[in-house]
Each structure stands twice: as structure tokens, then as C-alpha cells.
């Protein structure tokens, strides 16, 4: 008797194997889908958090850019700190620092 025609309690072996495989397949697909959907939900939640954080960062970057616009900084520094553009007399190089300090040292 071939394996195909062999019967166990009236059921053909091949049918039982196919049924078993089918149940296994259904179970594995169910489990895979369930686990995948749970993980997808988790991933989606994290992605939403990332997107929200990114949106917040962009908002803050735009806010910083808005607050740092040159005309505003200039107005504030002039009004509250009495600052102005750097005059040439206030500018020097590291090489000339020593010669600038020399009169002070002599004093």
C-alpha cells in the first residue's frame, strides 16, 4: 500500500497530514499577523512620537530663527547693551596682542 492510500481510523494519512499542515498554516499566519500588528502599532506609536518631537524641534528652530533675526538682535543690543558695530580700533590679531599689551606692562 502506498503512503498516499494508507488510512488511519478510516482517514487517509495524506488527508490528515494536509489537515495538520492547514491548521499549522492558519495558526502561524494568525500568530504572525497578531504579533506583526502589535509590533506595527508599537512602531507606529514610536514613529508618531518621533514625528511629534521633530515637529516640535522644527517649531523651536523656527522660533530661534525668528528671535535671532539680525534687526531684532541689533535693536536689543543697541537699546539694552549700548553695543554697536566693531570699530577698526577695537580689532586686532593674535600676533599683535603682545605689542598692544606692552605699554600696559611697562606702566
Amino acid at each position: 500500500m502506498s503512503v498516499i492510500n494508507r488510512r488511519i481510523r478510516g482517514f487517509r494519512l495524506v488527508d490528515l497530514i494536509a489537515l495538520g499542515l492547514l491548521v499549522l498554516l492558519i495558526m502561524s499566519v494568525y500568530l504572525a499577523k497578531t504579533i506583526a500588528s502589535r509590533e506595527r502599532a508599537e512602531i507606529a506609536s514610536v514613529e508618531r512620537q518621533i514625528a511629534a518631537e521633530r515637529a516640535q524641534i522644527r517649531l523651536l528652530q523656527a522660533e530661534v530663527a525668528h528671535l535671532e533675526q539680525p534687526s531684532r538682535i541689533e535693536r536689543l543690543s543697541t537699546t539694552y547693551l549700548q553695543m554697536g558695530p566693531v570699530a577698526v580700533a577695537q580689532e586686532t590679531t593674535p600676533e599683535t596682542l603682545a605689542s598692544l599689551a606692552a605699554p600696559e606692562a611697562r606702566r
Binding site: A55, Q61, A65, E68
Partner: peptide
Amino acid sequence: GRLLAADLL
């Protein structure tokens, strides 16, 4: 790299 224009939510 200073921001000049951006899409915001």
C-alpha cells in the same frame, strides 16, 4: 545654515 524658510506643522 541659518533657517530662512520652512514648512511647519
